[in-house]
Design a protein around this nucleic acid. Structure first.
Lengths: 102, 102
DNA sequence: CAGTATCCATTTCGATACTG
DNA sequence: CAGTATCGAAATGGATACTG
């Protein structure tokens, strides 16, 4: 949890789960994140070894971010979280949810 | 993620996954949480419908907290998170982790 | 036992403006 | 394009002391 801390963190990992992505693409994926916060989160995740930053020396410059092997280990957890989110947002079709009190 | 926000939140749900638990028991489970923060988290989780608070009119008074049906939906996600945590702390025995770059 | 009441430090977020 | 610089607001966390 300490590693997933902070707004957007899980969402960023989610976005990178489909493959490497550039800074601008991440901004587009996360419509309401600011450049400042995105940079903060990316730097944080990088410092924890969860993502890797790869500057590509083109002009204009571009930078790619990708999950590391360590970062990929979070995917099952992120998917599980996303699944709960969906269930709570849309409900489960043909649910038996209320049949068994926990 | 918004619902799991805050330190201790996931740990509290984890503690309640084995069954109802009283305030004092939760404090014992989470050795370094303060009463104030525990109360805050419990009230928050209650307001989101994730746990239920059941005062038991004894003397001295005791209060039980338990997961709601909604709260139980978080368990797969919490377990997945816990699993990653273990992997990162102790490493996977006989790992093939590094064979496939993500 | 199960909390409240204060106070304070730190972290985090967001908006806006600017740059190599 | 991919950031950085500032600033202020808000959320969060922790310590300590007190209570019905």
């Amino acid at each position: 949890m300490a590693l997933l801390r902070g707004a957007w963190t899980a969402e960023i990992i989610w976005c990178l789960s489909a493959g490497p992505r550039r800074f601008g693409e991440l901004r587009a994926d996360l419509p309401s994140i600011t450049a400042k916060v995105l940079t903060e989160r990316l730097r944080h995740l990088e410092s924890k070894g969860i993502i890797q930053r790869l500057p590509i020396p083109t002009s204009p410059p571009s930078v790619e971010y990708k999950l590391t092997v360590i970062g990929a280990k979070f995917l099952p957890a992120i998917h599980a979280i996303a699944k709960v989110g969906d269930e709570l947002k849309f409900g489960m079709p043909d649910s038996e949810a209320d049949l068994n009190e926990y």
